[in-house]
Simulated assay, not measured.
Amino acid sequence: MKVHVDYNKCTGLGICESLAPDVFEVNDDGELELKTDTVPDGQLSDVEAAVDGCPTEALSIEYDE
């Protein structure tokens, strides 16, 4: 599964970082960085919570077929 960020929508609030810190990080400039673009084993629910909690709807998950 892949994690996608629409950087045109992202405002760097950091909700995603607080919910899935192994995947998301807001840098010192307030910009979101992906630590990995794949969902780590056992962390799907955390990443889904981050996607659902994003107020700007900038995050999405591409599920494996």
Rank of each mutant, 00 (worst) to 15 (best):
Y7P: 07
S45N: 12
E25M: 09
D28P: 00
L13H: 15
C16D: 12
C10M: 06
C10K: 11
C16H: 06
T11Q: 14
C10E: 04
Y63E: 13
A20M: 11
N27A: 08
A20S: 15
K35Y: 08
A20E: 02
L34M: 12
G53L: 10
S18T: 14
Y7I: 08
M1N: 04
D22P: 00
S60F: 04
P55F: 09
E25Q: 13
A50D: 05
C54Q: 08
A58L: 03
E48S: 05
D6A: 03
A58C: 14
L13G: 13
F24V: 08
L34A: 08
A50L: 04
D6K: 04
G30W: 06
K35C: 03
P21I: 06
D29C: 00
L59E: 06
V26M: 07
T11A: 08
L59Q: 04
N27Y: 09
S60I: 03
D28K: 14
G42K: 05
E62S: 13
Y7S: 03
V51H: 07
D6R: 11
L44W: 12
K9D: 05
A20D: 07
L59I: 06
Y7H: 15
P40K: 12
V23Y: 05
E33I: 14
M1A: 14
E17A: 07
E62K: 12
Y7C: 11
E25F: 08
L19Q: 13
V39G: 02
D41I: 10
Q43G: 01
A49N: 14
K2G: 00
V47P: 07
